[in-house]
Write a protein that binds this DNA or RNA. Structure first.
Lengths: 193, 193
DNA sequence: CAAATTCAGGAACGATTGTTCCGTATTTTA
DNA sequence: TAAAATACGGAACAATCGTTCCTGAATTTG
């Protein structure tokens, strides 16, 4: 009856994530999308509706990937503190590796759009809540196992950790290339845990 | 000979800061500027050149104001730790007060433009350097006076503090309205100092 | 008064924006 | 083979973008 789809929606979304991440929402034009996604204007609009919907879908996919990755790390972790350290080390590697500094797609989107777009605001809020939950559970587990200091409540530490994570992502976006700056922040952070 | 200027450039810049801060660079149109600044298209372009120049000038003015304010606080401070606490408390008040959540103009601009605009990147970088310097000196002074823990070097703590400051400004921009979240972060932060 | 300068207002610029639509080729399955 | 669905390229849309320019009124100082 019908011709099958020639492209995988998820693969296109991954490319959309790339360009939106790099250039932001307002900085990415429809023409940019057509060129970078490798499909025609018509297919693009037929498949994803419009630019805003494509962006929201990209951000949701990014969110899911990032969350799943962190959740998995904590799940199979035997030492929460070490796992946390790995997560931050990874963020630093990405910040320094990235020839085109992209920071964090979620943080970037928060700042550019959360205030002016309800749907994006919802995604950002749900991300914050989920991350707070995941980090709180992890820290709690770490405290139960005497791997993390009990000087502060799990939720307090979770919010604190997440805040430093955001900060580091901003730093990356500004183009900071001095590894020592990141290491200093992490060193001080872990002196609380 | 000539008619005198009817508007003060600085006052116009303050209004430009407001709208750029709120809507970002790409989100602010020339029409927005004409309406919000209260002067005509022609005067605008005659005085400031173009949109990009006006933005850069606004950001520089914002930077100077923010820096001077913090420098003055540290200069007349008798207890650095308390002053630091005041600075963070103030950031929280602004985050919660602001009916239209604006976050930090410098952080917002970093994320939106630093990567794509050299001049903005320069401003952001000079701001980071100056802030690191100011915070390092303050922390050093606090350590000398036994007001701040010596468990970490002054520069390490300075970078750490600034990182949390950035994080909090991102949080504000996402529209977080729960004071407890901010207080938790600050509580954990100050357990290091 | 006269020259000089500054303003507002608005028309107009070409370029780019996001989006729609059409014609046609391609591929699938009944 | 016929029908259905998909994808493509490109033309075209109105709207908005940043910017330039012109006119005329207002105000200042020589």
């Amino acid at each position: 009856m019908a011709r099958t789809k020639e492209f995988k929606e998820d693969q296109v979304l991954d490319k959309a994530i790339e360009i939106f991440w790099h250039k932001g929402y307002n900085g990415t034009s429809a023409q940019d999308l057509v060129m970078h996604l490798g499909l025609s204007r018509s297919s693009l609009y037929d498949t994803f509706g419009d630019k805003q919907k494509l962006f929201a879908q990209s951000l949701r996919r990014y969110q899911k990937n990032a969350q799943d990755q962190i959740i998995e790390l904590f799940d199979k972790s035997e030492n929460i503190k070490e796992t946390l350290h790995d997560i931050f080390k990874q963020a630093v590697v990405e910040s320094l590796d990235d020839r085109i500094t992209k920071g964090c797609f979620m943080v970037n989107s928060s700042i550019e759009l959360a205030m002016h777009d309800e749907e994006i605001a919802k995604i950002v809020k749900s991300n914050s809540q989920k991350m707070e939950e995941v980090f709180t559970n992890a820290v709690q587990k770490g405290q139960d196992l005497d791997q993390i200091s009990k000087s502060n409540e799990a939720k307090v530490l979770a919010r604190f950790i997440f805040n430093n994570y955001s900060g580091i992502r901003v730093l990356a976006r500004t183009g900071e290339r001095d590894k020592q700056v990141y290491d200093d922040i992490i060193k001080a952070l872990f002196s609380v845990l």
